[in-house]
């Protein structure tokens, strides 16, 4: 389908053209919903649709009021003069600013945990000696497959009443489980651990994929030259698989950054993240502020996509494949 050959019949030309129109429409379907919210977020009116003034490109029809609203909504004194005290108020009290801070805290810690544990495990899984490889892989990838509502329900019960199974020991009274006093529901740690679990499959998948292209003889070469396993890992293996590790980390971050059901089930009011605040916004008081947040998030996802694409190309170059 690269180019229409010169010997093609009229019917084939017509079909090739129709095919491209169909593909164009599907791609439009994919991208249009994301693009359409960007101009609408600059709407001067509290509507979700293009006003007449917007369509005639009248500057009066556009404004930054919904972006301003992102800063002021939830503040103690939004109308005070905008000095240092106003900015401190926004930083500490504005709903969306606090949500962004929560999302960043949870996302960063969950990503670091998932990436470190996931990369270690992927190194083990990529070895042919790994016992029960397929079964372990299936368990580690399962958080991605199990419907989120089931994971959230399970985690909700566990975090509200944590305990671990015990074989029937000579305890008095005989117990099948060990209960803990502390609770993870409504804490940052709880959400971070839950999001770590959800991010792990992405790290495992991307890092094991990178490792399949890794030449094991490099490790043996390093060992024969006298490097220990730790040194070999950091000096030889790590630089080569780093692009895969970073893109796994970005996947894990996005998973946490976009996750709402876990937060809905186990998060307290203090731990409201951006998706959770959007969820509330869509369900309760739908206002164009949502579109302003959405636009900011689209910009974030463009940045993430660019980063992952650059990493993918670098990884392919490092592994001697043709750069895309």
């Amino acid at each position: 389908m690269a180019a229409i050959p010169s010997h093609a019949s009229a019917l084939e030309r017509l079909w090739a053209l129709t095919f491209r129109v169909i593909c164009g429409l599907v791609l439009l379907f994919l991208i249009a919903p994301i693009l359409v919210i960007i101009p609408l977020s600059f709407n001067a009116e509290p509507y979700f649709t293009f006003t007449e003034r917007m369509l005639t490109l009248d500057p009066e029809g556009y404004s930054l009021r919904w972006y301003d609203n992102l800063l002021t909504f939830g503040m103690v004194a939004p109308d005070a003069p905008r000095d240092a005290g106003w900015w401190a108020d926004a930083w500490n009290n504005a709903t969306w600013v606090r949500a962004a801070k929560n999302s960043a805290i949870v996302g960063v810690f969950a990503t670091v945990l998932a990436t470190v544990l996931g990369t270690l495990a992927a190194l083990g899984l990529a070895r042919s000696e790994m016992p029960a490889r397929k079964a372990v892989m299936a368990i580690l990838v399962s958080p991605m497959i199990v419907p989120i509502i089931i994971s959230a329900t399970g985690v909700f019960f566990f975090y509200s009443n944590p305990g671990l199974p015990l074989p029937k020991l000579a305890l008095d009274p005989p117990a099948l489980r060990l209960d803990f006093d502390w609770k993870l529901a409504g804490t940052y740690l709880g959400i971070i651990l839950a999001h770590t679990t959800l991010g792990i499959p992405f790290v495992i998948i991307t890092v094991t994929a990178t490792l399949t292209g890794f030449d094991r003889s490099l490790v043996r070469a390093a060992a024969s030259l006298g490097a220990g396993p730790v040194r070999t890992f950091f000096r030889v293996q790590m630089p080569l698989i780093l692009p895969g590790v970073i893109s796994g980390a970005l996947f894990a971050f996005v998973t946490s950054f976009d996750e709402v059901v876990m937060v809905l089930f186990i998060g307290a009011h203090d731990q409201q993240t951006i998706p959770r605040a959007m969820w509330n916004g869509i369900r309760e008081q739908i206002s164009p502020s949502i579109l302003a947040v959405a636009t900011v998030l689209v910009v974030v996802s463009v940045a993430l996509l660019t980063a992952v694409e650059l990493l993918r190309r670098r990884s392919e170059r490092l592994r001697g494949m043709s750069p895309g």
Partner: peptide
Amino acid sequence: AALLVAPLLLFVLVSFVWPIGQ
């Protein structure tokens, strides 16, 4: 190989498989 996988497997078993079983 098993030791490399063990920490994560333990984490997923405790924080995911066990809660769902419960």
